[in-house]
Every structure is written in structure tokens, then in C-alpha cells.
């Protein structure tokens, strides 16, 4: 049984949420849902405190540390997002921007490109499921790049109508 974290920025009563949970659980996964819609996590302010002053700990005390721990605890993370301007919604972008404490400020070169040295010995697996209009090809490309920076593996980007696709990848 795999442990899956579902980070959800859709309203809790959105039908997509239960559909995605059901699809993930049908593959014998244990799903922990993190409802972020009401949380209103603040944007990353680029202060570098998590790199230079309190390494690994964000300066903003708004409960995001619970998510940092949950990313580490689970076998895979699925981001469930609405869309805006052909992309993920603003809440989701803020959540992903805030993942910076998972890497250090140190740099190493991987496959000819600079990367931040991961803070933890953890192979992250991130996937994206979105509800709304977006450019699927681009979102797949973006997820690849995002996961690369955390030394992880992308599970891909899927419209909510194709949630079984992400279940199959986990």
C-alpha cells in the first residue's frame, strides 16, 4: 500500500475532490487529503531565511510547515488544482513556490545544469491533477521541471477527467 498526499486547492465540496480521492484509493493507496483552499497560505516572499538563517524552516508561520512534513512523509504527492490563465490556480502556485525549504542553497550540477542540493534523502514523486482549462502539454513540461529541481520524479499532469492516468503512474 502506498501513502499518497493529496494537496487540494479546490473547495472541499467540489465533486472533483471526492472523484480524485476515490480514484486514488481504488488502486489500494492510502490517501491523506490536505485541504488548502481555506488556508490562504501566504506567497513566498523570497527572504532566503529558510536557506540562510533558519535552514529548512520557513520564516512565515502560517501552518505551511505541516505541508513540508507531509511531503516528506508520503510516497507520492498529488497536487489537485483549479486553473487560471491556462495554468494552475494562484493558491497552488503559492503552495509550490513555498517548497523551497526542501532544498538547500548549495548548488551542484546534474546532467549539465545547476540544481540546488536536496536537504533530505528523499526521492520526491509529484503529480498534478487539474480541474478547468489548461494547456496539458505545458503542464507536463512544467511538472517535469519542478520535480527536477527537487531531485524528484514527475508523475505527469492530468485533467480531472483522466485521473485514472495518475493513479496508474503511482
Amino acid at each position: 500500500m502506498k501513502k499518497i498526499l493529496l494537496v487540494n486547492t479546490l473547495p472541499e465540496n467540489d465533486l472533483s475532490v471526492s472523484n480524485v480521492v476515490q480514484a486514488l484509493e481504488s488502486e489500494d493507496n492510502k490517501v491523506q487529503v490536505f485541504y488548502a483552499y481555506e488556508k490562504n497560505f501566504r506567497p513566498c516572499v523570497g527572504c532566503n531565511v529558510c536557506w540562510l538563517i533558519t535552514p529548512g524552516v520557513c520564516s512565515q508561520r502560517d501552518g505551511y510547515d505541516e505541508l513540508l512534513k507531509a511531503y516528506l512523509a508520503n510516497d507520492a504527492v498529488i497536487f489537485l488544482s483549479g486553473t487560471t490563465l491556462n495554468f494552475v490556480d494562484c493558491k497552488m502556485k503559492n503552495i509550490i513556490d513555498r517548497m523551497l525549504p526542501l532544498v538547500t542553497m548549495g548548488i551542484h550540477i546534474v546532467d549539465g545544469q545547476c540544481r540546488h542540493i536536496p536537504r533530505y534523502d528523499k526521492k520526491f514523486r509529484f503529480g498534478l491533477v487539474y480541474s478547468g482549462v489548461a494547456d496539458n502539454e505545458y503542464l507536463n513540461y512544467w511538472m517535469e521541471r519542478v520535480t527536477l529541481n527537487f531531485g524528484g520524479e514527475s508523475l505527469g499532469a492530468y485533467p480531472v477527467s483522466d485521473v485514472k492516468g495518475v493513479s496508474a503512474c503511482i
Partner: peptide
């Protein structure tokens, strides 16, 4: 230390 792991106990 810049490479500290404050949430190490959460890993897996």
C-alpha cells in the same frame, strides 16, 4: 548548519 534537516523525523 546550512544543511540542517529540521523535519528529518517526518521522512517516510
Amino acid at each position: 548548519n546550512l544543511y540542517d534537516k529540521p523535519y528529518e523525523s517526518s521522512v517516510n
